[in-house]
Design a protein around this nucleic acid. Sequence first.
DNA 1: GAGTGTGAAGTGCTTCACAGCA
DNA 2: TGCTGTGAAGCACTTCACACTC
Lengths: 213, 213
Amino acid sequence: MDSKKIPKSAVTRISLCLREINRLEKEGKDKVSSTELGDLAGLTDVQVRKDFSYFGQFGRSGAGYDVVQLKKIIERLLGKDKAWEIVLVGAGNIGSALLRYPGFKNQGFIIKEVFDADTKKIDKRYGDVTVKDVKGLEDAVKSSKNIKIAIIAVPAESAQVVAEQLVRADIKCILNFAPVLLKVNGGVMVKNIDLSNELESFSFFLSSNGNED
Amino acid sequence: MDSKKIPKSAVTRISLCLREINRLEKEGKDKVSSTELGDLAGLTDVQVRKDFSYFGQFGRSGAGYDVVQLKKIIERLLGKDKAWEIVLVGAGNIGSALLRYPGFKNQGFIIKEVFDADTKKIDKRYGDVTVKDVKGLEDAVKSSKNIKIAIIAVPAESAQVVAEQLVRADIKCILNFAPVLLKVNGGVMVKNIDLSNELESFSFFLSSNGNED
DNA sequence: GAGTGTGAAGTGCTTCACAGCA
DNA sequence: TGCTGTGAAGCACTTCACACTC
């Protein structure tokens, strides 16, 4: 209810831990220490323990963590004890790749509705879903009370308009692939995936640190 | 040569600024202040000035920044005064979306080589490039001296092996789409794009802050 | 002994406040 | 006056050091 002083990055790290815990569970491992889990997730042992400590005490001194139990705790923590429905806007290059990507459904994220403006894409089927005309976006999302997460995979020019429709339809989280700053009100969480931006970090790194040890 | 105390995030922010400067240039604007640029890029005026200040003094007191000049400075800074060649490993969902995405080439990032293990994908053409058998990956990248950046878009199980081949072939930067921790030596820069991870931040946010003002 | 949980110290990034320049 | 550039202060996150538990 009341979140004291939790670094934003703690959630990302815990999410990485969950990924590794799932692997451990599949391998049939039943106990894990913070050091082991950290090695798997690319974190230090202290980071693992500290991040967990923001949410409670999950371990047993001297013995580490119970894999199955830890998995359940973290899943509940991250809200993964239920499935989440997603609306995808844009069924172009990236959008259709996301539709075909099985990882989402496996992780409990279900693309429930897809919209596009291009008549050539409308009515196309991807598994269980059919691409609809973006004109119906706002109404469809409004009436489907469960959808709180949206993915924007439209060209930069259309992204802001789409974002505004989504916000009006009560979307609370937007994963944005368009290379543009979305202006939305404070209650909405936006995460940007900007590949050119990532690559520019590389070109900077390569240009400046050309010869570092 | 010697980089003092530059926050890692400064490069990302400057990259965002460049995106907006390009827009301003297209619109024919010739001057811009840190406040304006910040508004466009989603930053504060101080952030903009501070980030620039790590690299020099680009502005004119009282008058702001010259758009064309600033663009050139930042492009050189980020190493965008030349084109960068990229090797893509994996021509599946995500890989083929990246191949069709025009944004990279526009930004000076050119996918020069593509590899896959699937015989059904090998020999497929995407624009100028043809998918090759991943067996030839290491040799091809080694002999092509210009490629320092790689994108991994293969299943999680294969990603580590591919990464090791890339590192042996002298790749210095890896953009990794596989949901797995790549273990590479310190000189190699890895950036991970993990969509499930991003979505889990959303589900956490929605589960905990369900009712916040 | 092995490993957790955490206050306290340390570090690095951000923001403030203002000097300086056109 | 309008805006840049930056040392200094403030803040948030990370790491350390160790008390504590099984």
